[in-house]
Design a protein around this nucleic acid. Structure first.
Length: 575
RNA sequence: CGGAGUGUAGCGCAGCCCGGUAGCGCGUCUGUUUUGGGAGCAGAAUGUCGGGGGUUCGAAUCCCUCCACUCCGACCA
């Protein structure tokens, strides 16, 4: 490609609405432009990267034995009614009507459509297992789209759905997908980790997320420092303390803590550490027969955070987890938030392991403006119902039994699930088995955020001058920068010659052939755009038959013979 | 949904407090000189000042209203 015939839309200044580095650099490098909140245009430069990511994903999926299909973006409501998600999905599902007033939605995911398609096409166990995928636009009406392409409303996803007649078969395909995802992210040149994950709203039994490690990630990942264990913090189990609870040393006392509500304020006032306190959260319980929801208290150590996912799975607690309205707490417990404690509370209490392990702790006195000190379980309040309801923190023992946990930030770029029969059951997707009996198919589903991968790759590969693309997904692998083509025929000729040679050798080359372009501007642009290999051609070097090479990450440029450039780059560029 | 903020040329911004008919830098176009790391000079084009309404002789500026966008929060308990 010649720069004179390609839209190089680089910006010197960053548009003011960009916050994270990938968003800024994608705008500055001329890859994307915003159309509306969470909606982006892909310029030629960006699309080249996106297509390369797609190509790698497609090649690896094909290699895994999956079959590519293409499903509609607009989906009929009736399928969503059938699965029950028309009611469940919530406002992220963009609903609309056609001219006949028939309800539709923009697909945020395609379980319903694929299940409908396959139940009509596959009738026999002999056709199983089968795995279908597509690379296609999804729409999710996010509350707050942010970080450019990283969390946009419209995005491109590779989604795959597999169908089976046994859990063993599902497990096999799941394992193949796990391996395929590892190959894909390795080929993309990313530093990633598969991590154990919660199955979330999609449902199902077993699940892994694939995270690209980067500080700007929105997820916390817990890693063992002594094994392969890695889990999303939503999922990572906090082990119960292994030592016995210390014996009580103090008597329970009520102390006035006027105006002190938060853990921080109370600790400061009473001169204790948060680890020596508990906080009591009031949430709604499961809906009872009379349609009312009782209150339930959750007790955590002051320095710990509630893990909503863990909590809402406990029996007696409503899912999704909902904090009780303050007015209801006032009315039923007779105390304002900020002074609640487990002692003498008249509602069910569930206590986190580490809070249950405390002796002589501080908690709210269930009386506005008062706290209790020197509180001890059993002596002052009956032995609590104990569960794991907190997020793990760095330094916790790893659930795998080896080492302690570290927490890192990750960007979720892939997710694989064992769905089981959630959709096939609801939508009656069945095959005849060996005995001629109807059997509900078992399903798996597997997603990769293709557009998000592009942003994640930048989050992991940039410097002060711009993007640094991995070879596999660079918009161009090589940039040829000739100095003064309008003045030097020798330079112009050599640039054309090398451009032809490299192109013929199968490299993706960008020839900077704008006659008026100055060296500094061209170098700034090729760096910003992240082109990983750069050749500068000038009269000075040509006198000795040399050109200049610099890898995007190299500190120094080097002179190499112009004649050997194809061989030189064949060694440098991973293909 | 709650809170905060922003909307002025393609991009980044000033002007608004204190009303007088719109400016700077970058980019773009023309010419010219220059050319080994985002050139210099000379000239030029580009604005319903987010929309609507109001106050006023006069509104980018003051008031009302709507819209869009951005950020933060949605775990005080």
């Amino acid at each position: 490609m010649r720069s004179s015939r390609f839209l190089i839309a680089t910006l010197k200044e960053t548009p003011s609405d960009a916050e994270v580095i990938s968003h800024k650099l994608m705008l500055r490098a001329g890859m994307i432009r915003k159309s509306a909140s969470g909606l982006y245009n892909w310029l030629p430069m960006g699309l080249r990267v996106l297509r390369k990511v797609e190509r790698i994903v497609r090649e690896e999926m094909d290699k895994s034995g999956a079959m590519e299909v293409l499903m509609p973006v607009v989906q009929p409501a009736e399928l969503w009614e059938e699965s029950g998600r028309w009611q469940q999905y919530g406002p992220e599902l963009l609903r609309m009507s056609d001219r006949h007033d028939r309800p539709f939605c923009l697909g945020p995911t395609h379980e319903e459509v694929i299940t409908d398609l396959i139940r009509n096409e596959i009738k026999s166990y002999k056709q199983l297992p089968a795995n279908f995928y597509q690379i296609q636009t999804k729409f999710r009406d996010e509350i707050r789209p942010r970080f450019g392409i990283m969390r946009s409303r419209e995005f491109i996803m590779k989604d795959a759905y597999s169908f089976h007649n046994s859990t063993e078969s599902l497990q096999q395909t799941y394992d193949v997908m796990h391996a395929t995802y590892c190959s894909i992210f390795t080929r993309l040149g990313l530093e990633f980790r598969p991590v154990l994950a919660d199955t979330g709203s999609i449902g199902g039994a077993f699940s892994h997320e694939f995270h690209v490690l980067a500080d700007s990630g929105e997820d916390d990942i817990a890693f063992s420092n002594a094994s392969d264990y890695a889990a999303n913090i939503e999922k990572a189990e906090a082990l119960p303390p292994s030592t016995p609870r210390p014996a009580p040393q103090h008597l329970m006392q009520e102390v006035a803590t006027p105006g002190k509500h938060s853990i921080e304020e109370v600790c400061e006032f009473l001169k204790v550490s948060p680890q020596q306190t508990v906080k009591t959260l009031i949430v709604l319980g499961e809906v009872r027969a009379d349609k009312t929801q009782p209150l339930v208290a959750l007790v955590l150590r002051g320095d710990h955070e509630l893990n909503e996912i863990k909590a809402e799975k406990l029996t007696g607690i409503a899912a999704p987890l909902t904090l009780a309205p303050e007015a209801r707490i006032k009315e039923e417990l007779g105390v304002g938030i900020g002074s609640i404690g487990p002692v003498g509370l008249k509602i069910p209490v569930i206590v986190d392991h580490s809070a249950a392990h405390l002796a002589d702790f501080v908690c709210g006195a269930n009386k506005d403006g008062f706290h209790l000190t020197g509180v001890n379980w059993e002596r002052d309040e009956q032995a609590p119902l104990v569960a794991d309801i907190r997020n793990v923190v760095a330094g916790d023992p790893s659930p795998c039994g080896k080492g302690t946990l570290e927490i890192k930030r990750g960007i979720e770029v892939g997710h694989i699930f064992q769905l089981g029969t959630k959709y096939s059951e609801a939508m009656k997707a069945r095959v005849l088995d060996e005995n001629g009996k109807e059997q509900t198919m078992i399903m798996g589903c597997y997603g990769i955020g293709v557009t998000r991968v592009v942003a994640a790759a930048i989050e992991q590969n940039f410097d002060d001058n711009g993007i640094i693309w991995p070879d596999a997904i660079a918009p161009f692998q090589v940039a040829i920068v000739p100095i003064n083509i309008s003045k030097s025929e020798a330079v112009a000729n050599k640039a054309e010659e090398i451009y032809a040679e490299l192109t013929k050798a199968g490299f993706d080359v960008l020839l900077m052939d704008d006659e008026k372009a100055r060296l500094g501007a061209m170098l700034a642009d090729t760096d910003l755009m992240g082109i990983p290999h750069r050749i500068v051609i000038g009269d000075r070097g040509l006198e000795a038959g040399n050109i200049e090479y610099k890898g995007r990450r190299d500190a120094e440029k080097q002179e190499i013979p112009a004649a050997g450039i194809v061989e030189f780059l064949s060694v440098k560029i991973q293909r």
